[in-house]
Design a protein around this nucleic acid. Structure first.
Lengths: 334, 334
DNA sequence: CTGTTAGCGCCTTCAC
DNA sequence: GTGAAGGCGCTAACAG
């Protein structure tokens, strides 16, 4: 393995001069160029371990995320990986496990090995204790999620998204609108997005002077939604308009409607949230968000913060955009 | 930060003794216990950078993967993250980009910073040159994918999967079976799985003395499949039985069938491959595979290989399992 | 601007 | 069984 010493010797300078030439340090232009050429010839690359030991910096960013096998998290990580690469940071992944079984371990992990220059969590609500654990790390911390005291955060303006979806149905004349989503207590009940979207739904109805239906509580999966929808459509007062907390839920409702012999949108209108890759094939009207872009914002900020901390802690709510497709029709004549 | 020196001083022993006590070294039982207690009290954790510099080991495993935002890759990574944690390895992620735009950079990246103890690629076919680049790293290398000379690999027995799916349709009396999948040339054309599944389909038909239909070539997404299926169903000799190269393709076909007024399975039978989380909601008969389990196998092997290299290079083909649901019916009377 | 000198924190011979 | 000393590769004062 070729070390700095090799480069220095071959270039006829001291290690420190070589080191300066390779980084920012003050060296004559001639020396710098010379050292750089030698280094290139020798394919020299600094040992990350040595650099880290000497500087305290690791060149990597840590991620704490729930199970990736959801469209949202996976797409977010894609954006993050891309942005990290652009800033020349490595990405270290810590997964909470399918049922959050490694959740406690995650925070301890980063506390013990201090091997990242910045950390972030994504897609689950941090407890106050966890926020404390992250802040104690003494490195920049960010999160993809709702407003969290003490941490810089980003996410879709979920309340606005719920409101937008609901208003879209109101605009087509619907007066009796159901909200589907928000899951029962369970170990991995980590999201608050569904709650916020429901709040937006309530707010839109309230402004219109309309009463909400009781919310359908369910896990945010196609399977759970389909099962729930089957029950909803079998009832006497079957819903004619549905705001789903996510596209996966919306898809479950669409599948169940068809199975019940109902037509979308003639018999039921459905709006989702996400603009999931499958949404178009379902001809689903939805409120769009772009997790990859959210990841980019996060990493860009963290990278800057590592260089010179600003101490910012505010929340950024990203504006929702409605994508109109064919799953919403006019309200049935009363 | 508490260092080994702190522990040693507090325990009244030398750094070397403390070091031995904390690792494997020969020390008296009493000393070991004492040092261990002190270390625990002080919440001592060895600096990864220092350990790495001294031993050459980094305690992390590198992953090279295509865009995660597919069910397969995301689930695989979940299994891998879990297994890595179990072996106390950190996971470093390198993403190839949505269109493979960082593909070249990936291999160079690991070559330069030698900061992982093992690497693997997943879910794309390595070129001969890339295989060489990985092997030159001088660390254990594995891959999730088809047989690759020089590398230990794992994946679903794709040919058997294609055969199994086809045989299932044959068993219900179908004689005219279409294969959908295998995409046209494009930057990210990295999978060979679809080809192997098609080979299995051909083999099953050949054994039955039947002729295949021309394959439907398309990108492996629900959207692309739905569009393709719409065309297929509009033709005069519309297919009555379809083997889809993946569940996403199968779902596209099911959605298109319904839109064309065809009933599944009365008018069309469809079999997929994967057992995607949405498959049940589509009542899709499919050939199952478990990416998370595949990831576990890979990491377990790599972890062992880091300890003591075996030099194994064979391929492991995982047996497919058919999951019968409702998307396959008997062949129409001739 | 450049070279010398110390470490960063740990492991590992080598003596004892 | 234990301690002392040296080195892993690099950066950061400190002199010159």
């Amino acid at each position: 393995m070729v070390t700095l010493a090799d480069v220095a010797r071959r270039a006829g300078v001291s290690k420190s001069t070589a080191s300066r030439a390779l980084s920012d340090g003050r060296v004559s232009a001639a020396t710098r160029e010379h050292v750089l050429r030698i280094a290139a010839e020798l394919h020299y690359v600094a040992s990350p371990a040595a650099v880290s030991l000497a500087t305290g910096r690791t060149g990597t960013i840590g991620a704490i995320v729930p199970a990736f096998d959801t469209w949202y998290t996976a797409t977010l990580i894609r954006g993050i990986a891309h942005a990290a690469l652009r800033h020349d940071f490595d990405l270290l992944l810590f997964e909470l496990g399918e049922h959050g079984e490694h959740r406690d371990r995650a925070f301890d992990h980063f506390r013990r090995r201090r091997h990242v220059d910045a950390v972030f969590s994504a897609n689950f609500a941090l407890t106050r204790r966890e926020v404390g654990a992250l802040r104690d790390l003494g490195i920049p911390v960010g999160a993809i999620g709702g407003p969290t005291p003490g941490i810089r955060t980003w996410c879709l303006d979920d309340e606005a998204a719920g409101r937008l979806a609901t208003q879209h149905l109101l605009g087509r004349g619907h007066r009796d609108i159901l909200f589907a989503g928000g899951r029962p207590e369970e170990p991995l009940a980590m999201y608050v997005a569904e709650e916020a979207r429901h709040a937006g739904y309530l707010s839109a109805l309230r402004s219109a002077g309309l009463a909400p239906r009781p919310r359908r509580a369910l896990l945010p999966t196609v399977a759970a939604a389909k099962e729930d929808a089957a029950a909803a459509f079998a009832a006497d007062d079957r819903p004619r308009a549905v705001v789903a907390a996510s596209d996966e839920i919306a898809m479950g409702y669409v599948l169940a409607a068809r199975e019940a012999g109902l037509s979308v949108p003639a018999d039921v209108s459905v709006v989702g949230v996400d603009d999931h890759p499958h949404a178009a094939a379902f001809d689903l009207t939805t409120v769009q968000q772009d997790p990859a872009e959210q990841g980019r914002l996060l990493i860009d900020w963290l990278a800057g913060e590592i260089d010179e901390p600003s101490g910012e802690r505010q929340h950024t709510a990203l504006a929702p955009v409605l994508v109109a497709r064919g799953s919403v029709g006019p309200a049935p004549a009363a």
